[in-house]
Design a protein around this nucleic acid. Sequence first.
DNA 1: CTTGCATTGAGGTGCGCACCTCAATTACAG
DNA 2: CTGTAATTGAGGTGCGCACCTCAATGCAAG
Lengths: 340, 340
Amino acid sequence: MRPTAKDLAEAAGVSLATVDRVLNDRPNVSKKAARLVTEAIERIGFVRNPAAVNLARSRIYRFRFLLPMAGDQYLRELLEKVDEAREALRSDLTDVDVVQIPTTDPHAVAKYLSGLQSEEVDGIAVMAPESPQVRDAMARLIERGIKVVQFLSGQEKLKTADFVGIDNFAAGATAGKLIGRFLSHEPGKIMVIAETMMAQDSIERRLGFDSIINERFPHLCPLPSAETYGDERRASLVIQRMLEHNPQINAVYVLSAEARLPISTIAQFADLRRLTVVVHERTPFSEEALRDERIDAIIAQNPGHAVRSAIRIMRARLEAREPLASQEKIRIEILLKENL
Amino acid sequence: MRPTAKDLAEAAGVSLATVDRVLNDRPNVSKKAARLVTEAIERIGFVRNPAAVNLARSRIYRFRFLLPMAGDQYLRELLEKVDEAREALRSDLTDVDVVQIPTTDPHAVAKYLSGLQSEEVDGIAVMAPESPQVRDAMARLIERGIKVVQFLSGQEKLKTADFVGIDNFAAGATAGKLIGRFLSHEPGKIMVIAETMMAQDSIERRLGFDSIINERFPHLCPLPSAETYGDERRASLVIQRMLEHNPQINAVYVLSAEARLPISTIAQFADLRRLTVVVHERTPFSEEALRDERIDAIIAQNPGHAVRSAIRIMRARLEAREPLASQEKIRIEILLKENL
DNA sequence: CTTGCATTGAGGTGCGCACCTCAATTACAG
DNA sequence: CTGTAATTGAGGTGCGCACCTCAATGCAAG
């Protein structure tokens, strides 16, 4: 049998009460007693039974995901995964919920975060664009004991918060490498499309992309980023003009999470199958496009993994444990038609 | 507060004892009582508190990984991940251990499995090559109530066991697609190397590989599989001869998990950087080779994920739950230098 | 030595459930 | 109607720990 707290008390030569004081960081413990107990813990290999701990504490973890209001398929996917996690954790003393607010307005985000009470929630995963106000609000949340995870978004990294997501520079570089190698030695121009280049992650991806193209594939010329602002008419205009002015385009890189608008717009003016196309994020649309070879590769970060990871991290932090780094690292996945 | 069993009893209009009988499938429950309780469960949204359940049952799950005796870096990686999982689960009522036996001897594997008692272990993840004896032994284990996972190995799938690992046909196809697209339109021959072609997974990978090369890249010619049998001298002989007879070779595909021997052997006779090379499994060796561009891509299945997945599945089965399919699917990862 | 404070031990309660016993009630066959 | 079996309820115990109270002990300053 595993040693219990009682065994531990015996081994340390102290009472159960003192063991309890040490284990739970209660006051009024002499250095000597603390040492006796910690030594005994090592010696007999004592590990708290988490089931008993949770039961006794009758504690419920309340985690929240703060996600953008709008969004196309990728966001929907994400919401679904959060829901899945909620269901899976219902039985596990963990409540998960979602709040959607217009994250393009940093003021609104900051205000929401500032209003959060630790009675209301134990941890929050925030997916919002970079802004000093939001960063400040997060820092203050952390001071108040609410765990914060910077979630899949291009924030400047806080040292006191955890980050869940991919290295966007590397992701851009990966896209560049794929396009470069797929095109082989043919020279040409690459169309780069983003929803907006205001977001930190778009910028990083672009930098990574350019760096490898310049270094390894100088015969390829990446064009300036075209921005759609998520607007159909604007996308149509910008893309059509770019295609007309650059007949040498033989590749397309879509920086943003939502590939549907750019890709379906391009399809109106050019033959996708003659282009090498790389996009971000697996969605029903991008998956289908990959299957019928309108696009050649998807760079993805597994949203289900990201959601679970964020929850595990917040939980570990609350229990003052260190998260398992290797498990919590989100991989930059490359999806081809063959390994979907 | 979440409803407790007591609330449930009240809501169902029966006693706690009857609720207990229904929840734990004990005998002597009338259909009517069972119905009352299950209806009440739905109605009030009752969910058992797993902490309390585990505490009351004071049950410890004992899982075992049965792995091959020998092996190079990949196996070592795997052992490490199992160890990591063991540590992480120590506090979680779960004991994990490893047994290594010479899995090339199906007789020994079958014998070991047959000798297993359900008093000793609750579930076992078996990584061993296909053989009817082993399959039978596993089937008998399942009948005795021990959960079995076919782990990362080329077994014929049992319907009654779970499988953790990748689709090897698709993995081979992915390798083929990468090589085909990386080589672009240049014709040439592809060297295919395996430790042995006796293993089910090697065969499936080869089939997947050939199918896509034939279909999509007919200008490429995959050579017959060269087998190293893990032997240095044999590898040297076979590979040197193949390279001499086929100067048109411009790509290499290493089917097996251990790429070190084939790759370092090739390096003695040819310039790896002029070849397009795809191998399986991330190991310290393959990682370094990818970094310094001796190889071009790694097809990997995350061993840490696989280990954790196997454990989660065995656990879910023991608790008569359905594992979360989306989480337990092992992805075919493509690693380039950029997304390592 | 006394006062005041920090430290320690003993003991109890409750978390939500599994598992057990024993009596009481009900259903059913003969 | 009787006997028997099936069903139900009441109640208790323990899992390992957190959290609380109260009394007892130690220690140091004045």
